[in-house]
Computed example of a mutant assay.
Amino acid sequence: MPLISVIIPLYNSEKTIRETLESVLQQTFSDFEIIAVNDDSKDSTLDILATIKDPRLKVFSYPNRGLTVNRNRGLALAQGEFIAFLDHDDLWTADKLELQLKALQENPQAAVAYSWVDLIDESSQFIRSCPHFKDRRNVYERVLTDFIVVAISNPLIRKSALEKVGYLDESLFGPDDLDLFLRLAEHFEFEVVEKTQFLYRITNGSVSASVVRQARETLKVIESACQRYPESTQHLQKNLITNVYMHGAFRALDAANGRQNGIASAKCLWEAMKNDPSVLRRGGIGIALCKIAALLILPSGMYPKLINQVKQVKKSMNPKNKTQR
């Protein structure tokens, strides 16, 4: 049996699935299976999978039920001792599985190993790095307050731990991964690989229509967590609400392609300000407001060009680049 099961839920994934699978097949650790769970795709996803001749790839097709159901379907099929989820448009660096597995093997008390994260756009171009967290061992509060694992495509998880805390909650829209990480953090230690190993793709379609709803769903998860530990989390609740909406605001801006993203970001920022007016004094808020205004005012397609021009100017002004020239 394979040591690791990689679970990839699929739905109309033709644009990205080949690149995603290549990032798995190039791993320096090779004792894994890939469980591709097709959720009744209508495009050429299955045709692309058929061209990949690797015995580790196993494809299963089901009637359409949604992302979280597909993750759980993959879990039920997994034979590995360790589980790694990977969304169809995300990417891993080549040493991701090897180093996360090593971290868990060196600490038998840990059930989750996570890494650092970079955001990429639809063309696989770098957007920005997420904060480099270094939290180990007992991380419950940090998972709750700072979302240190970022997304489900990041960690390697012991299957025995998943069987203890339960699979993903299919009633949630969006934060099923946060809910799972919190349940795992209640019972197990975490480890971190201090290296960027997960490239999280942000796309316009995946963000604009859902970011406000996802923020509200995330608050449900956080409220449930706070009810379980009222004494230790009561002082955090106001800041938690603010952080959720701020995260949504910046996530919409990361997608940055269209007026709808500006509207979604503005809604989340407004909710954050209503909860805590001091948000306006936080670093980066001025830039965020300028970006929102640009998204709302500029014609469609102009905003990305403007951002690229600003990046080029900043790059040209970097003293290191001048020294290299």
Rank of each mutant, 00 (worst) to 15 (best):
L3C: 12
S5R: 09
V6T: 05
P9M: 05
N12L: 12
N12D: 10
I17D: 01
I17Q: 11
E22Q: 06
E33C: 07
S44M: 15
L46R: 15
T51Q: 12
K53I: 11
P55V: 12
R56G: 05
R56M: 12
K58Q: 13
Y62D: 04
L67M: 09
T68I: 02
R73L: 03
G74I: 00
L77Y: 01
E81T: 12
F82S: 02
F82Q: 09
F85L: 07
F85W: 04
F85P: 03
F85T: 03
H88C: 14
D90L: 08
E98Y: 06
L99M: 01
L101H: 01
K102C: 06
A103F: 04
E106H: 08
N107H: 10
P108C: 01
P108F: 01
A111F: 00
Y114I: 05
I120Y: 02
I120K: 03
I120V: 09
S123N: 15
S124G: 05
S129W: 04
P131K: 13
H132P: 00
F133S: 05
K134Q: 14
K134M: 06
R136C: 02
R137P: 04
E141N: 14
L144H: 06
T145W: 08
D146P: 00
I152F: 03
S153N: 06
P155E: 10
I157H: 05
R158Y: 02
K159I: 08
K159F: 02
L162F: 09
K164N: 04
G166K: 13
L168C: 02
L168F: 10
L172M: 11
P175N: 08
D177Y: 03
D179H: 12
L182I: 11
E186I: 11
H187L: 14
F188G: 12
E189W: 01
F190I: 12
E191F: 08
V193S: 03
F198A: 03
R201N: 06
R201S: 05
S206K: 13
V207Y: 12
V207M: 13
A209P: 02
V211G: 00
R213K: 11
R216H: 06
K220S: 07
A225W: 11
A225T: 12
P230V: 14
P230I: 15
M246F: 02
M246T: 13
F250A: 03
R251T: 13
A252W: 13
A255G: 04
A256Q: 08
A256N: 07
N257L: 03
R259N: 08
R259V: 03
N261Q: 08
K267F: 14
C268F: 15
M273D: 06
D276E: 11
R281T: 15
I285Q: 01
I287R: 08
A288R: 06
K291D: 13
K291Q: 15
K291Y: 07
I292F: 00
A293L: 12
A293F: 14
L295E: 15
L296M: 09
P299N: 04
P299Q: 06
G301Q: 13
V310P: 01
K311N: 10
K311L: 09
V313K: 13
N318A: 10
P319V: 07
